[in-house]
Write a protein that binds this DNA or RNA. Structure first.
Length: 291
DNA sequence: TTCCAGGTATGCA
DNA sequence: TGCATACCTGGA
């Protein structure tokens, strides 16, 4: 990867395995939106647009300091995804197709707190409404950022949400999950450092801790573990991945979620999380598992 | 009008 | 422990 500093931009040349559409539409994040030119997102207190320019990737509105301080880790740029795909291809022909199709996927290292709240909101919900609700929460409780003439908002801290109220959260569109958000925020505030130290614990220890939060079950805990704690053995099983695995591996036979997870853990081991993302993107884009 | 959407909490046997 | 059921809400 060659890093070229341009005026207000960072240009990345010869960057392997990086396709914005693959990264932002494989189900791992809710705050990146395509604006016709690229994907704009808010991470921490930074706004950036990711644009494809031929074989280059441009991080618009990014300086060198931010690139090294924030974005290398966020986009997992130090990891060799080519070797991950090579490893996955060894498992079976299904994974081969999925990794060839979604060759530009990367797992983002997102903020655990934001990921926790976002996926609590995802329960029994649809993606458009989840995104809208998160934006509402940020507009009401976050800090305003002006970026190229447009207003963006940070994701509010645990303390701010812990001091919020049910009625306002309900008006943001949380629905019955408002109570889970408030209870979880209060619990996180009691020991915020612990949430950020889960990265150092084992997968099982991290999951045990996450399951104690209100509104967090096995699926949400796995999403937080995979998308913000670097627990790549996690394999979140939602209704989509359940249908996808049934369609691709079990000739559409009905399998319970626990058995799907067990199957994936046994088969893919420490690569389960990567496998989940390639499978999810491949199947969703090709309408596999839709019935 | 009814049903469904990236699950979880709750009550009951 | 295992199963059934309710749950906000907006769009199809």
């Amino acid at each position: 990867m060659e890093i070229i500093e341009e005026k207000n931009n960072i240009r990345l040349r010869a960057l392997d395995s990086f396709v914005p559409k693959h990264i932002f539409e494989c189900g791992q994040s809710f705050r990146w939106n395509f604006d016709g030119m690229g994907y704009i997102g808010v991470v921490g207190d930074k706004v950036m647009r990711v644009v494809e320019d031929g074989k280059d990737i441009i991080f618009e509105g990014c300086n060198v300091d931010d690139f090294y301080d924030t974005w290398i880790d966020y986009f997992d740029l130090d990891r060799d995804y080519g070797s991950i795909r090579s490893k996955l291809i060894e498992f079976d022909s299904i994974m081969k197709k999925a990794t060839v199709f979604g060759y530009g996927i990367r797992l983002l290292n997102q903020d655990p707190w934001e990921t926790l709240i976002s996926f609590i909101l995802s329960a029994n919900n649809n993606i458009n409404r989840i995104k809208k609700t998160i934006e509402n929460i940020c507009m009401i409780y976050g800090d305003k950022i002006l970026w190229r003439g447009q207003e963006y908002y940070t994701f509010p801290s645990p303390t701010i949400l812990a001091n919020s109220d049910i009625d306002t959260l309900r008006r943001c569109g949380c629905g019955y999950r408002d109570r889970y958000i408030l209870e979880t925020a209060k619990k996180v505030v009691e020991n915020e450092a612990k949430l950020y130290s889960l990265r150092m614990l084992s997968y099982d220890e991290a999951i045990d801790f996450l399951l104690k939060f209100s509104g967090v079950g096995p699926k949400v805990a796995d999403c937080v573990a995979l998308f913000s704690l670097g627990k790549y053995e996690a394999f979140p099983v939602d209704v989509w991945i359940k249908r996808i695995v049934e369609a691709l591996y079990f000739e559409r036979e009905e399998i319970c979620k626990e058995d799907i997870k067990r199957f994936a853990s046994n088969k893919f081991g420490d690569y389960a999380g990567f496998a989940q993302q390639y499978l999810f993107y491949y199947a969703r884009e090709n309408h596999i598992g839709n019935g």
